[in-house]
């Protein structure tokens, strides 16, 4: 059954230059393993294809049951000089949560 990440997990976006970081934290720690299997760096890269121009690297944090996605080339050239409405990409945590997983 397809479920939106929004139902299963929460996220906060961060920024450094043109790099966007997105955490993915399941509400229930038992869900961590399922998310780790399904929410791969490749899938995130294709989900955010129109936003992230560079690579996506995923870091696993089993100690707190969370994943961290580091997305290169995601902020229209960088926070300080971007013409975008949301220069920091702060709203993009909810773009990640739009992704669907199969449970």
């Amino acid at each position: 059954m397809a479920r939106k990440l929004y139902e299963l997990a929460h996220s906060r976006a961060g920024d450094k230059g043109d790099v966007l970081m997105l955490s993915l934290i399941p509400y229930e720690e038992e869900m961590y393993e399922k998310l780790r299997e399904q929410v791969t760096a490749d899938r995130v890269k294709s989900h955010l294809n129109h936003i992230v121009k560079g690579d996506v690297i995923r870091y696993e944090m089993p100690n707190i049951s969370a994943l961290q996605f580091v997305c290169q080339g995601a902020l229209l050239g960088g926070v300080t000089t971007s013409l975008g409405m949301d220069t920091h990409g702060k709203t993009l945590s909810y773009a990640l949560l739009e992704m669907e997983v199969d449970l």
Binding site: R12, G14, Q68
Partner: peptide, 14 residues
């Protein structure tokens, strides 16, 4: 939950 979000906030390589 709030602490986890902040632990990962703006972290390039945990």
């Amino acid at each position: 939950r709030t602490v986890k979000e902040q632990l990962l906030y703006e972290v390039m390589d945990p």
